[in-house]
Structure formats: structure tokens, C-alpha cells
Design a protein around this nucleic acid. Sequence first.
DNA 1: TGTTTACCCTATAGTTTTAGTAGATTAATT
DNA 2: AATTAATCTACTAAAACTATAGGGTAAACA
Lengths: 137, 137
Amino acid sequence: MLSKKTKYGIKALTYLASQSKREPVQISEIARHENIPQKFLESILLTLRNTGFLGSKKGKGGGYYLLKDPGEIPMTTVIRVLEGPIAMVPCVSLNFYEKCDDCPDENKCTVHKLMLQVRDSVLEVYRNNTLADLILA
Amino acid sequence: MLSKKTKYGIKALTYLASQSKREPVQISEIARHENIPQKFLESILLTLRNTGFLGSKKGKGGGYYLLKDPGEIPMTTVIRVLEGPIAMVPCVSLNFYEKCDDCPDENKCTVHKLMLQVRDSVLEVYRNNTLADLILA
DNA sequence: TGTTTACCCTATAGTTTTAGTAGATTAATT
DNA sequence: AATTAATCTACTAAAACTATAGGGTAAACA
């Protein structure tokens, strides 16, 4: 299951990406428009800022804004920051690899074999979708 | 992340599928061979029995055994029973559909749009893999 | 200097996961 | 009939994770 954090984060990012002007948007506006609990959204936007996706401006006229072009932001990076590893099992993770406690030999593990395929197919979807791709239509 | 329940369940199923003879295998043997906590495995095998994957025999010489041919068991059905919905979000689930609280219009939801693609690609992997496919090499 | 906004820290209720414990039930063997 | 080897059932519980809420701080702007 996708966590609400990730869900809300994607919605917020695409909302910012769909803005005609690249000017700061207030948290409250995003929260209202996307039906997200404001305090929760606050913490999400903060992590998106700390990981280089968003810039922010304080005070009147302040808010959050995208730092890059939506077409330059693949969903792989978004998902990894918000949700964590894309792989269903650490032993098939590219960026968060970890050996399993059970399982003496990964090459003979049926779960490993299956989840490798899942990882690859999911990865391809995320790679083929940027923020810009999600907005249209 | 895949739950250990699912991981252990798949391992147990493939272990049973790889048996040359279709005779009852004891829980303790599976647990030992696959490094699974026995009591945990016990409950997993029970749900696999109650959902029609396994048969069981009590008493001496008893144990669990596959009811169908491994080639007749697609991973879609295994995953759905052990892990639940394949979709990352209820609003794109085929078997467990549910509307989102936020989100007035699914067709305009960017998360929906992305997760539909993810569901389809994952589903294809699970459909193309039966228990028999996981065993070989 | 007052208002508006993001920023930061803490707490917490709820749920899910991952088991462990204790004992009942069943069936084959002796 | 007694013994033994299994599955079955129910209850419990620690630990981790999720999804929030609350309250105060700091910066920008007018």
C-alpha cells in the first residue's frame, strides 16, 4: 500500500507543477485544493524541500515552489524520497540493498526471483513518468 | 514492502511445489529448510489451507501438501490471499476497489493515473508467473 | 512594528506486523 | 487401548509504523 504521505506528496507536487506561474504557493492553498490535512502536508513539503525538490519563501507572499522543470523530475526520485525503496524486498533493491536473514543463496530464492521482475517492471513505469506526464489529460 | 507473511508463504509454497512426491510435508521440515519461525509458518499454512491452496493431514505422517499442479497456480492468487490487494491504492484495485476520501474525480487524480500503470505492470508479472515458473533454475 | 507565512519539535492514538504461549484435536502406530 | 506425532485454535503482546495534532520560533514584508 502507498502511504498517505506519498500520495499527498505526489498530489502537492503535481499541483505545484500545474501552476501557470512559477510563484510561491501557500501550504493552506494546496491543502484546501487537494483535501490534505494541513499539518501533515506541512511536514511533507518540508521533506520535499530538504531533498531538493522544492524551494520556499517565508512571510507575506511566501510559500512553496518547484525548483526544476516538471519534465525533469522522474517519479523514481519522488517515490524514493517519499515512500522509500521501490523494491518490495530489500534483497532486490538498487538503492537500499540489504541481504535477507533467511535465504543463504539469493539466486535460489523464489521470492527473490519473482520480486526482481516486479522491481524491474515498476521501475520502468516510474522512469517513464515525470511530473509533467502526470498533469496532462 | 512485502510482509514476511507473504514472503514466508511463497517460500513454503514453492518448497512444497518442488517436492518430487505429492505427499504430506511436516511444518517443522518446511520451517527448518526455509528458515521460517515455526509458529508463524503454522498460521500461514493454515490460511493457505483455508483458501484452497493446500490440503493437510493430521496425526503421524501428516503435514501439508499442494492441492493443485504448481503450473495451475498463478502468483496473482497467491499474493492476493497472503498480501491483500495488488494495487498500491484502493481506487485502482480490481478486486478490492474503494473510492478515495479526498479526490472528487478519479480521472483527474495524478496519483490514480500513475498507480493504474503500476498496477497493470505488476499484474502482468504476477500473471506470467506460476509456482512452477519460480522453481526452475 | 505588526502581520503573515514557513519552520521546527514534540506527543500520541491507532493500526499492522510479527511473532510467542498454551492447549485441544486428530490420526496412525504399537 | 495407549502412545505418539501431528495439525488446529485461540489468546496475547511487543514492536514498529502511520497519520495526525499542538504549540512555539523565525523570517520576510508592509
